[in-house]
Every structure is written in C-alpha cells, then in structure tokens.
Write a protein that binds this DNA or RNA. Structure first.
Lengths: 338, 338
DNA sequence: CACCAGATCGTAATCGTTTTCGAAACCCTA
DNA sequence: TAGGGTTTCGAAAACGATTACGATCTGGTG
C-alpha cells in the first residue's frame, strides 16, 4: 500500500478527505486538516504527479525548448541562464516549474517538439531559436498548446512573441557609424535558418538607404555564429575589394574570434576598424571593450513568462495587460571598439 | 472519447490489442499491428504520458539538475551544452529523454531537488555543481532514486560519479610552472561551497611541497567565478608582498576579466606573468591564447549517461563495465599564456 | 418534536494506459 | 475425432490521484 491510501489508512479517514485536506479544499474540518498535514509531513508523503496529472489534465510544468550547441542559436549559455531566472520568478508565483527541453544538435527540432508534446509534461511552452519558417508554430497551434516564442518568424499563427529589437539595433548602429564617417560598413550575418539575420540585414539595408548608401552583397559576411566564425570573418575582410572600415555583429558569440583574427591581420578594433556588437559578460572585459547593445535578460524572462501565462486559459485573467507581441528594447553601451 | 480507446473503437479491436501492437509486444498478429500503426499515424494518436507513467511507474525522462547563473558553477558558456549532447546520444538509444531541471539562483538547491523528486518526472538524475557537503546525495539515496553526479563531495553515498581530474591538473600545472622557474605561484580559487576548489587547492599544496615549496595563504586568491572576479584578481596581485609570477585558474569563466585586469596593471600574460587555466571556445581565441586544460565534453556526457544507466536497475545489465567512480582526464593544450 | 441548513466526510467514478489471465480459434498429430 | 500446442485477442484489474455526489451528523428554529 502506497501513496495517499497509506496515509488515509494511517489516519483512519478516507482518501478523499486526505486529498481535500492537502489541497486546501474548504469542506474539511480544520482539526482533521491539521492531522493530515502533520501525518503527511511525518511520513514524507508527496502526491504522485502521474496520478495527479492524469486526473487533472495538467502537469504544472512549463517547458523552455532550446537547442544544445550554441553554434545554432548564436547565444551563449549565460544568455539563457539569465532569462530562465526571470521566467522562474514569475512561474514560482503560480507553483509552476520550469524545465529546459534540450533538443540535441543531431535531431530535427520539429520532430523533437512533437515528441515532447506527446510526452505531455508541459502545460505551456517557450520556444527559442525561431527560424524564418518554423513549422513548430503551426504544430502547437493545431494542438492548442499555449506557447510563446522568443523571436519572430514568417510563420506567425498569432501566438504571443517577444523578439529583440534588431530593427532598432540596425538603425542605431548604421546611423552611428555613418555619422562617424564610415561609408564601407560590413555586416556579419551568421547564416542558417534563424529568422533574426533576415530581419537585421533588411533593416540595415533600409537604414543605409536613408543615407543614400546601398548595401553591397560582399559587405555581408556570412559565417557560423561561433568564435571560429568570427575569426574567419577577419580573414575575409582583407580579401575583398573595398574592405569595410566598420563591422556590425548581430550575435554575441563571434566577437572573441573576430578580435583575434583582426589582430592577426593587423587591425585594432576602435582604431583601425569600428566594431559594434552585442554586450555580454565577456564583451565588457575584452580589450578593447566592445561597443554593443545590451538588454535586461532577466526582465526579458519575466515578460516571456507573463506573455505565456496570458495565453494559458487558467491564468489569462491574471495577466490581462501582457502585450501579445513585442519588440524588446536594447540600449547601446559605448565601449572602446567603435 | 479520447486516447487509445478512440483508436480501438475506430479499428474495432480492444484497447489491449492496440496497446500491445503499439508497444511491439509479440502476441499480436502482424496484419493487425500494421492496421493499428497505420491508424495511429493517420489519427495522430500518441499515448498519454501521465497514464503511461502511472501504470508503468516510470517516465522515461532523465533530469539534469543545474543552477541558473554561471557565477555558481564557474563553467563557461558552452560547457553544459556540449555535455548534454553526449548524454542525449546515449539516452536516445533507450528512448529516454533528457530535460534540464533549472534551479533558480534564488532557491535553495536542496529544496528544489525535493520538489522535483516529488514531481516525479525523472527516472534518474544527473547532478552538477556538487558542494563540499551536499545533502542532495543523501536525499536521493534515501529515496532510492538512481543518480550520478558530475563532481565529488564529502557526502559520498556510494553513488557513481565522474569528476574532472583536478588533481592531475594541479600536479601538471605546478610541475610545469616550477620547472619553468616560477617560485611564486598564485592560485585563483572561486570561493563558495563547491567541492572542486578544495580538492584543487589541496593537491596544489601537495605538488608544491614535492618541490620543497609551501603554499602561502596570500597566494590563494578567492573570488567569484565570473569575469569580474577575474578582473579583481589582477588588481589584487599588485597589492601583495611577493606578487606571483604565475597564476593557475581552476575555472573557465575568469580568464577574460583577468586578462583585462592584467592589461590595466601593465602585465602581459605569457611575458610578464604565466597563466594556466581551462580551455574553452573563448580561450582559444583570446590574445594571447590561453595555455589550459582541455577535455572532451561530449565524451564526458556519454560517460555520465552510461554511468547513470548502470545505476538504474532496468538498464544496469546493459552497462556492466561502466566505472562507478571516475576521474575524467584533462590534457594540457599549450597556448601563448604560459 | 419535526424539519432544515450547514458542516464534514465517505463512496465511487474517472483520467489513459499497461499487463495479466484466460478464452477462443486454429492447426497439427496420434 | 480427441487432445494438445500456438496464435491471437478481449476482459478486467491495476496505477494514484481528484472530485461530484450523496450520506450522516450536528445544532438551531418554529
């Protein structure tokens, strides 16, 4: 005999009463409730979640899907770690727990998501690494699973999303560099299916146009979002016709490699070439320190959680004012690199 | 009508047969099995995991507990992501899935673990960030939950563990530096409850003694395992009596900050001060590149998974030769820093 | 005393699976 | 044809919780 039944027998009450007592239901004598709570504590009883989830049709777990291997997302681990903190702060208020669903780099993200949904241990999902076309959105919408995405996609099914304001970043970066006299600006675009690159480059193109400049294709440096990717960019710069005098990086993860590469070809960031990128714990201590866009990762996590909850029927009324789709502002922190 | 029952009715067979067909049980006609599989595919049926877990008493999920906020673990950006990849490669063979259990920096790890165990969605656990005294070990042992730890602890309950070979690292580092003529060696020890620091420092002490040197207390630099922590160390170096001519870092996460700090006090790694640390994607591209200890993170993940499985009754016989407790070797990669 | 309302609690159905057990059907052999 | 062995499948009992419903009891009121 195990579980709630054991507890009930030990107390000589019915399992129904035990359940009600434990769950704070009203129709149970306060004295009885006290005894139940006490015995549960003493015997170390905790409700079996499978039974509970089966009956209630909900698990109390929120899943954050991410890809293992940062070459895919272009974000460092610490990026997500900080976001998690914010998400959890909100979820804890509702006794919800957060787990990370780790999609191996060897598995197709769409298949992976299907498996996880089938497992059914999440009442709601947060998706990251959104692709230009992302079938996951349609899948979740079809299965009526509440979710929010960190990042947009052309595949918009009306779900809430929050995305970093790459448009704003593009505008500000270009304006800053052009006003500083730069005419040949390079853009590092970690290629892949991720949507953010497209958004970013397109807006850069527009921003340049406003100054009468056109974005030349060979000023777009496609590479992988890794240190090695950044390193290679530095090499490539020297080989092209009119080398850029400034570089904009949309990812966090390229900068150390880029710095090293530039050093090897004899260019010093901030003096010989201007660099604007994204802030990170590393970037602030590089030499020269990076000029880059910063954001509050924890607050971003809070907003994600609130956005998700507002999409879950059981919690929606608590978060009426959570904006459904929102660009997350970033602010430029001046460093020594540009 | 939902779930397996709907499928059964649609096919006009019993739910028992459907279950057996889906689970590859032998006593079902191959023709019937084909029909069931086909219908399941067509109707998009996937077994409800709560019901399944309730009945089977197992969830098919492995949990990897980690703390959000790298200042706690002292591991770099990609450390865990790479380990995950290895773990999943093994687990996938057994249709097990890996999720990360994210302990917020605001919550007590011991309480958190209890909650997660109560939730009961993991058949086995991998623990990281092991502390000098770690009550989690005893808790899991008491509840008979299979687990393995990445890192040792004084609280050893005989569970399998794998730990990085900090002893070997200490030996080799000290020997290398002493043979290069260094007599004043500094040790950066991110203080905190983590066990690894104690192990490392103790072995460094022994290694020094072998050369007739004694480890002076003010050559131990206690700090936080973050960029800022490394930065501060550089400052502190200048203030002490006999400043070290070499520095050993046990963590990945300090090096960029340390480099910056050293630059500001006019010391160049590799020329004015030798640095030995841990390799990471960043470290290879720093300038000067880091001399540091490297390891195969993916293989480490594989070993962790195998060690865990060998502790789980249902899989133990498949992994008879997985060593129960093992130091994971690291190899020194020479860089420019020392 | 009869009656009712409210408090408290037990009974039993239910959630969706897996799995045991036995029944039915079939083939084969003596 | 009887009997025995194989396949194949259905019925039903778990697994551990939640909850609707109804039963019992208490105390108060007319």
């Amino acid at each position: 005999m195990k579980g709630i039944r054991r507890l009930a027998e030990h107390l000589d009450v019915s399992i129904g009463t035990v359940s009600r007592a434990l769950n704070g239901k009203p129709d149970v004598n306060e004295e009885t409730r006290r005894r139940v709570l006490e015995a549960a504590e003493k015997l170390g009883y905790v409700a079996n979640q499978s039974g509970r989830a089966l009956r209630k049709g909900a698990t109390g777990v929120i899943g954050f899907m991410m890809q293992t291997g940062r070459e895919i997302t272009g974000q460092g681990d610490t990026f997500f770690m900080s976001v998690f903190d914010g998400v959890q702060a909100v979820l804890a208020r509702h006794k919800l727990d957060l787990v990370a669903l780790l999609c191996s780099s060897e598995e197709d993200p769409d298949d992976y998501l299907k498996r996880m949904v089938a497992r059914g241990f999440a009442d709601g999902l947060i998706l990251s690494a959104t692709r230009r076309h992302d079938p996951r959105f349609e899948f979740l919408a079809r299965h009526q699973i509440p979710f929010i995405t960190l990042g947009r996609s052309l595949t918009d099914v009306g779900q809430p999303w929050i995305d970093l304001d790459f448009e704003g970043m593009a505008e500000q970066s270009v304006e800053r560099l052009v006003k500083a006299g730069h005419r040949e600006i390079g853009f590092v675009w970690p290629h892949g299916e991720l949507n953010l690159g497209y958004v970013f480059i397109e807006r850069c193109r527009q921003a340049l146009a406003r100054f009468g400049l056109i974005l030349s294709e060979h000023h777009i440096f496609r590479t992988t979002p890794s240190e090695m990717g950044g390193y290679k960019v530095a090499r490539d710069i020297k080989t092209i016709e009119r080398p850029p005098t400034a570089l904009i990086l949309v990812n966090e993860t390229l900068v150390t490699g880029l710095y090293r590469g530039l050093e090897e070809v004899g260019l010093q960031p901030g003096r010989d070439i201007a660099i604007i990128g994204r802030q990170s714990p590393h970037a602030r201590f590089l030499s020269p320190t990076l000029t880059g866009f910063d954001l509050s990762l924890r607050d971003l996590g809070v907003a994600l959680a609130e956005g998700l909850l507002s999409a879950m029927p059981a919690y929606a009324e608590l978060y009426p004012k959570a904006p459904r789709q929102k660009l997350w502002p970033m602010t430029l922190i001046e460093g020594e690199s540009g």
